[in-house]
């Protein structure tokens, strides 16, 4: 079986986000880019499945401008065999066209299993892998914290509300999205990093499609005004009273 892992490059969680001059986009100057942490779980799971002898090859695939190849190299350094760079410009807020371009690129790979992080920590859409599943016409198990793959079938434990789980049985090929708890992603070893430099990165250019949604403006949230700080446990009755009478939340 061939496993394709969808990977996204995102700003580090510590990043300060600034708007561009006219407020139509974000100023990404000086941002530290990382492999989306949820995609690390997906890469790790693919490598574990391969190490268990249930897959022959792990290909990582990412979409975006040239800078995203660095995130693909991170995944290659963890142990993936090959990478596909779906080359586009910067994201314009149209999730559908991203998913379509990735689905087309996946189709060329004859994948038995597509893994991805359940969400990307930049736009938090939780959407692209599900759209890819639809475009491929296969089943999906979204937000999965336990996975078993065996003989053309997968069993996935999908996290739903309040810690409950749906157990999903799925015929492969299919799409599974990883969340925290699925595994502990490995760190890239030094030899892994060296090897990653020589691993193949195939570049594909997707057909341009019409955007169905468009980012028109960006804004920053209003800073929360600092509130009142009380000293000591003896202030509890006062705070409780304020929560009812002033904040009206109890």
């Amino acid at each position: 079986m061939h496993i394709v892992v969808l990977c996204k490059q995102v700003p580090d969680t510590e990043s300060r986000i600034k708007l561009n001059a006219d407020g139509t986009g974000f100023d990404m100057e000086g941002i530290k880019w990382i492999l989306n942490p949820y995609d690390e779980y997906a890469v790790e799971e693919a490598l574990k499945i391969k190490e268990a002898g249930k897959a022959e090859k792990v290909t990582v695939m990412g979409l975006g401008p040239d800078r995203i190849v660095e995130a693909l190299r991170t995944a290659l350094a963890m142990g993936a065999d090959a990478a596909v760079h779906v080359k586009t410009g910067e994201d314009t807020g149209d999730t559908s066209s991203v998913a379509k371009a990735l689905a087309d690129a996946v189709k060329a790979q004859d994948a038995g299993l597509v893994l991805a992080g359940c969400r990307a920590i930049d736009d938090d859409m939780f959407a692209v892998p599900c759209m890819v599943a639809e475009y491929l016409g296969v089943g999906q198990a979204h937000v999965v914290s336990k996975l078993e793959v065996d003989g053309g079938k997968a069993k996935a434990w999908r996290d739903i509300d309040g810690g409950a789980k749906q157990v999903i049985e799925m015929a492969l090929p299919g799409v599974v999205t990883a969340t925290k708890g699925l595994n502990e992603p490995r760190y890239a070893s030094l030899p892994g990093i060296m090897k990653a430099k020589r691993k193949p990165v195939e570049v594909v250019e997707p057909a341009a499609g019409g955007a169905k949604a468009k980012l028109v403006k960006c804004s920053l949230p209003a800073e929360r005004a600092a509130g009142r700080v009380f000293e000591g446990v003896e202030s509890v009755p006062e705070v409780v009273r304020l929560l009812r009478e002033e904040a009206k939340v109890i």
Binding site: P11, T13, S15, R16, I17, L19, F26, G93, S96, I121, D122, D123, D124, G210, A211, K212, A213, K214, L215, V216, K217, C218, S219, L220, P221
Partner: peptide
Amino acid sequence: VFAGKAFAHIAMEG
């Protein structure tokens, strides 16, 4: 977006 550090305003064209 960016975990609430900013907002994206999106026009639904389709």
